[in-house]
Design a protein around this nucleic acid. Sequence first.
DNA 1: CGGGGTTTTGAGACCGGTCAAACGCCGTGG
DNA 2: CCACGGCGTTTGACCGGTCTCAAAACCCCG
Lengths: 288, 288
Amino acid sequence: MPSTQQIEISNGTLSAEASSLSMEAGRQCRGKLWSNLRNVCELLHIPCAATIEDAGLLFHHVQFKAGQRIYTIGQGFDALYIVNSGFLKTVSIDEFGNEQVLSFPMKGDVIGVEGIAAKKYTSEAVALSDCSLILLPFQNLVELGRTHMEFEHAIYSVISRELVRNQAMVSMLGVLGAEARVARFLVSLSNRYAEIGYSKKSFNLRMTRQEIGSYLGLSMETVSRTLSLLSEIGLISVYQRAISINDGDLLKNLRRIPPSKLRSKQLVANARALDANWHGASSSAMIN
Amino acid sequence: MPSTQQIEISNGTLSAEASSLSMEAGRQCRGKLWSNLRNVCELLHIPCAATIEDAGLLFHHVQFKAGQRIYTIGQGFDALYIVNSGFLKTVSIDEFGNEQVLSFPMKGDVIGVEGIAAKKYTSEAVALSDCSLILLPFQNLVELGRTHMEFEHAIYSVISRELVRNQAMVSMLGVLGAEARVARFLVSLSNRYAEIGYSKKSFNLRMTRQEIGSYLGLSMETVSRTLSLLSEIGLISVYQRAISINDGDLLKNLRRIPPSKLRSKQLVANARALDANWHGASSSAMIN
DNA sequence: CGGGGTTTTGAGACCGGTCAAACGCCGTGG
DNA sequence: CCACGGCGTTTGACCGGTCTCAAAACCCCG
């Protein structure tokens, strides 16, 4: 009872849809219900020794509709989740109720790790689309790790990996300007989409400009303007939430433009000069 | 051989002093040489069941002079360190050699955690003062955890705690202005000093303005200016690297001033109005 | 077709970065 | 002992990136 999910709708657009389901038991099950250890290891990209495959262990699947909350701040921690499908965001909420987006988990990502220390979640996870998560009761994991050394190390790795990611984020926020942040964000998304089988060059944003801005430490308007700029320059194409990456390398290496005076048009020139694989008309054609 | 320390001097002020020692074996030992598990648990503020005290395990102490590097980026990971005494910084280095300060570890803090995932350190740790660290070979920890459940959880906690800290940092960088960042930085330092037995109200900064700026995502000049401002307002007193906190509560709750037009003098009024425990002359007296 | 939320775009203000100069602290060497 | 030089710090002037406020266009969905 205390550890069951409190399905609640987000302060978003989907209240009507979500409310029709919100009274169900927290961890509802639909579609495929269970995953074994092998599935879990595959999702996490960790080697799964055959020796531990035997363990009859099965992990529960949990389905969430867009807008639903997986866990909330302060809720007692007892499980991690692996994203099996769908897209989410994790947010912290400051002392005055302002949301701050911390990550955009997708297939293969683990959420809830920050709860281990205080035995409470310190952020909340919200489904941006319908999601299927794998429930990993933390005690089970620990016990499993105790009997299988290589799995134990996997647990440590997963946690530590989060740390590395956050450090990269801190570096980015501290050093890079708006253009570079947005550019890297897109490259990062592109790579992650590719990893899970989507197109690396063309994909849909699952989050609003607002959420991107919060994640990158920018205002919504700056995100929008920057996307427009990158599009004008031809590095990407934007049509609402659909993004096409026209030049990933240039995007990835885009740096702070403040130190120098080279601006917009100058950049276009640079882009054309530096990029052999230039797709002339594709970008502007798609935009207008 | 591959895992021994490569003692090198920092790009700092202490080159002459450090170089006289830099050729010694990496993990030199002086003063107290060993700590047992009880010591370790005390440092980490985790309960240490008497049952595991028996273990004859002793952990090596390692001494570093100011300016020396504890580990470097890319170096193979095999151990964590607990700070037993002294002050350090951890930094990442971006693709163009710019340092980015990630943390300022002090007594009781654990460093090296980010190395677990990739089995390589992804940042480097540098001593800001002479330091005594406790070497915790990671394999030993894991084995210890396997035999003692409560210690195992402690390991998970320590790692996860780092994650929570970084999330708070990301939130701060994303939302707060310069004054608030510096203010919170001081409050945070104050609290941490208090935890380890120093004065909560009056302490010395162990790092340069440059390093503070890097840590907070600000320029050195802005840090300096902001310290001056906070000092003028009377919230703190600054004399070189000596800091006095005159009003911790006000500091802690200081927020972004941009949204409104209330500036410097206005703030002084607010401060005087809100703070009952006002120390009239102390600040300005100490400054001029 | 209307309404709410999202996105775009503009104009202006302001914070913080950059460049530059001067000062103070401190160890070195004359 | 003092002069010198290096480094950290402070402060000023200026510029520019980003935020804020505002309005309009757009999309989705009922």
